[in-house]
């Protein structure tokens, strides 16, 4: 199922919460939605979940408008909000049963859906507990179960990892990966960028309601570093962006999950004392060398950027020259660095 946000704007009085943003994504992928506080993330997510109405623009699920057909869209979209379940005097299974009934699940179908979701979210031991007696992490699991009870194709999550301990976060990551493997499209906002980096295939970055950048992680890193995006991302994303004016997440096959794009390699070389300078000059002559620094007259720190094959050739020449290699690291720019580079920290 293709989810497409098209020219979406939301204005509250004089405040432009969301300013004409467009992006799209498809099923089987996990996309992060990042931006500073007050950037318009929750507003966008609420409109996508049919909880709010856009001032202009629309959200389409396989071409079906969320504004015109919210009832139809709700059958294929699951929404996990940033707030926790708050009903009183009700047990976990009763709570989930209520939502299953509300989605029109009846009889054996409902029982099966409830059992499946309780197993999937590991709520078996908690099913007879009252909601108020649950910890935050447990409530988050109940909230996820509620969002998934009708087996939606698109899952929209607002700050799902907020306030969770490391174990709960790890469990959430695992669940999300399983859901992505089940061909669900997952769109989640989070402030914990290291969490997103581990699981996301792409990201949408907004600030002050405006779209700053959107694409697969490789695309985004390429935009920041000015490098060339890898062929897979370039082929799928760029035509989409040109065709409909969106920023082009659509159709991008998943880049290998958990890896941000390489930014070259860092090499630390040990030279005989006083011979570091000639090595530095030699390295600087190479077109792939980005920077070379000297330390203590016998250590050279170099950064070499390029494709894997190109970098391999340079490293081969270093070894051939008989220099001692102290360390050799593949450089990666994290989502956090990317976020810091793209955004300016402004709020509305």
């Amino acid at each position: 199922m293709k989810t497409e946000v098209r020219n979406l704007s939301r204005i509250f009085g004089k405040t432009v919460a969301v300013d004409n943003i467009s992006f799209s994504f498809e099923d089987g992928n996990i996309f992060g939605f990042i931006g500073p506080n007050g950037a318009g993330k929750t507003t966008t997510i609420r409109i996508m979940a049919t909880l709010d109405l856009a001032t202009s623009g629309d959200v389409f699920y396989d071409g079906v408008s969320a504004t015109l057909y919210p009832e139809a869209v709700r059958r294929v979209v699951g929404y996990m909000p940033d707030s926790l379940p708050g009903y009183k005097d009700i047990q976990v299974w009763e709570y989930l049963d209520f939502f299953a009934r509300s989605f029109g699940l009846r009889g054996a179908e409902r029982t099966r859906a409830l059992n499946d979701i309780v197993d999937f979210t590991n709520l078996g031991e908690l099913r007879n507990k009252f909601l108020f007696a649950l910890s935050k992490g447990m409530k988050q699991r109940v909230s996820l179960a509620r969002a998934l009870i009708h087996n939606p194709k698109v899952l929209i999550m607002d700050e799902p990892a907020a306030g969770l301990d490391p174990r709960a976060r790890h469990e959430l990551r695992t669940l999300l990966k399983i859901l992505a493997e089940q061909k669900k499209a997952i769109f989640l906002s989070s402030h914990i960028l290291s969490e997103l980096q581990d699981i996301c295939d792409g990201a949408v970055i907004i600030e002050q309601g405006k779209l700053l950048s959107a694409g697969t992680l490789n695309d985004l890193l390429s935009q920041v570093t000015g490098g060339t995006p890898p062929p897979a991302a370039a082929e799928s994303a760029v035509p989409q962006a040109q065709a409909d004016g969106t920023s082009g997440l659509s159709g991008a096959p998943a880049a290998p999950r958990t890896q941000a794009a390489p930014q070259g390699v860092s090499i630390i070389l040990k030279t005989p004392r006083g011979e570091a300078e000639p090595v530095r000059l030699k390295l600087l002559e190479h077109p792939l060398t980005r920077s070379v620094d000297l330390f203590d007259d016998d250590e050279v720190h170099a950064v070499i950027a390029g494709s894997d094959a190109e970098v391999s050739r340079v490293v081969g020449t270093v070894f051939a020259a008989g220099l001692t290699v102290l360390s050799f690291n593949r450089n990666q720019m994290g989502l956090e660095e990317l976020f810091m580079k793209i955004t300016q920290g402004k709020v509305q």
């Binding site: 049919t50 909880l51 709700r74 929404y79 379940p85 009903y87 509300s102 029109g104 509620r146």
Partner: peptide, 9 residues
């Protein structure tokens, strides 16, 4: 909570 009930059918 009412919002989430409204997100059902």
């Amino acid at each position: 909570e009412l919002n989430y009930a409204m997100l059902t059918t």
